[in-house]
Design a protein around this nucleic acid. Structure first.
Lengths: 334, 334
DNA sequence: TAAACCAGTAATAACGATTTTACAAGTACT
DNA sequence: AGTACTTGTAAAATCGTTATTACTGGTTTA
């Protein structure tokens, strides 16, 4: 059994396709009596318009593409969930692509989305796909960067937190507690999240007049293993830091594991602060003090920006750079 | 700047659209010299076919739809990731829909996917959307159920674990350790996961000749709160179970929280076993003994079944019901 | 009463691709 | 030399919609 189409309904009622279409789309210029008849028949056959044909004709697929590094990271999952909620109420759907933290795969995903003619794009970039994004934008596709910002940020929309300020803030929490020997495991330096969090950390240290020990500054890759290995390495040093800032949740898991391996207690032997909701179970002891990004909101606002640009009369060339306020969660890890 | 299309290239080279199309699709019957010229021009303009038009003509959108209750649940996120990997290598994309555990929203999502003409469907159903799924199948769209099975399972493909056997097994782990007074917090009884896990539990109890105390059998809803409140209630009873089976990860978080509130230790005061990877951080103490579903595999195999049916010559009316072996993780919670 | 207008409908032309058919010129075969 | 086949290309049909234009009666207007 094939799907019933306008033509079938038209034939059944001896009407033209265009009339049926006008009924479906609730346009005027159709006799109330005819409309009645058509509506009944549509219901009989349970007619559902073919969105592919519709998209082609209207040149709009009503679909937002999202490319993120890892969907199993609850931060990104939550971003997606937020964007979804907005999409649903606006009858948009979402094509979700995992880049697996791989720049090539990210570009592949973007090309796919380009070909699929997505109406809008949400992107957390791990590579340098900026040119592709510009092409999308050139075709009238609004693009919102989240998490990692592209080099020339002012030519894109974005929704993020102020990573420099956030890192500054959480480092200061340590400093105010009296910690002086502080290290950091940050993210890849070529990603804005990595470099900005490092930068905020350094500013806080400098501002407090604290010496920054370069051997306690490690560049991780935002994955568990890198938190584990960097912390293991640091723990072997003749002089250890008293506290560590860890630039994301996964690396924190690894770092904490390294501390436990070494039989060290948090915060007695070393204090730990981090980024992202470390523990969605709420069961981890001690609770880790962390900068908590409003992930759901990031997704929600991103989708709203896109839909506003698509449906509203706002100028597409005017870009919004939304900075959200992260939440500081105070645990007992310091 | 609009997107360049076949017609533009054709005009530029004084050729017909069909010739360009044949070059793009690597069909024969085109002069090598012409092909050369065309290829160069395609590269010049960086031509990318419009997938919407293509999909309409070919009647295939090369897209798999997936509807799951909650993308922030790492189980489902992992399913998606597995399916994605397969989709990527086969140049399919995925439309992801959250049902938020709501039957109505689930149906809405399915209708959307139907209209979008998705090529295949992966579904974890929380309601009774079976009729809609049948309609999809009637249109030649392979549908794979995961997690929760529909009532007449033999008319659909499915990938799951044997929930009865798994519950039986993990209950037996408790029994072999010598626990006799055992309770359970299961999922909604109208969902197969809920009822089957309860059923396996009951079989294990009966088989061991243990008495089943009905007041220790609670029907939860797979969310944190329900684990919390049911466990609180059970802890207030005059006679407490010595061990509890919890039917999923979220309810386990709640149940463990209730135990901690009451100052009870696992497993000394009460043993706990559960379903799903309780702790992705690997930091929870004690580690919870649990049935671990191969979520990534479930996604991967689901997508493979769909793509095989779409591209292969397999009969679409022959359904596969894949039962995967879950992993038993032995923690120190018993 | 003829021109102008209107409501209701059908016919037609898009949207951007692929596939089928048609056709022209060149080559092979009898 | 005339037919048949081959090769390369163009033209047309198609996918299922929506939007524009054209047409048909009937009603209003000058």
């Amino acid at each position: 059994m094939r799907m019933v189409k306008l033509k079938d309904i038209a034939k059944e009622l001896n009407l033209s396709v265009s009339t049926i279409s006008r009924v479906v789309n609730n346009k005027d210029r159709v006799d109330p009596k005819t409309r009645e008849k058509v509506l009944e028949m549509l219901k009989n056959y349970d007619y559902k318009p073919n969105e592919v044909a519709r998209s082609l004709r209207l040149r709009d697929v009503k679909t937002i593409g999202i490319v993120i590094p890892d969907i199993t990271n609850s931060f990104y999952a939550s971003v997606i969930k937020g964007a979804q909620a907005v999409c649903r109420t606006n009858e948009y759907s979402m094509i979700v692509c995992n880049s697996d933290e791989d720049g090539e795969l990210e570009e592949g995903a973007l090309e796919l989305l380009l070909q699929k003619q997505v109406s809008g794009l949400i992107l957390s970039s791990v590579g340098n796909s900026f040119k592709l994004v510009q092409r999308l934008q050139g075709n009238g596709v609004p693009a919102v960067y989240i998490d990692n910002m592209p080099p020339p940020m002012h030519t894109c929309d974005s929704v993020s937190i102020n990573n420099v300020a956030a890192a500054y803030k959480i480092t200061n929490v340590l400093i105010e507690k009296g910690y002086k020997k502080i290290g950091i495991i940050t993210g890849p330096i070529h990603q804005s999240t990595g470099s900005e969090r490092l930068s905020g950390f350094k500013q806080a240290m400098a501002n407090a007049g604290l010496e920054l020990a370069e051997e306690w500054v490690a560049e991780g890759n935002f994955k568990i293993d890198s938190g584990l290995s960097h912390m293991r390495r640091i723990l072997k040093m003749p002089v250890r830091p008293e506290a560590m800032v860890i630039a994301n949740n996964y690396m924190a898991y690894g770092a904490i594991t390294a501390l436990r391996e070494a039989g060290l207690k948090i915060p007695k032997d070393m204090a730990v602060v981090a980024f992202d909701a470390i523990d969605e179970t709420g069961l981890l002891v001690p609770r880790i003090t962390a900068i908590n990004q409003p992930s759901y909101e990031i997704g929600r606002i991103s989708a709203e920006i896109i839909i506003k640009k698509l449906t509203g009369s706002t100028n597409k060339k005017v870009y919004e750079n939304i900075i959200l306020e992260p939440e500081l969660y105070l645990g007992s890890s310091i």
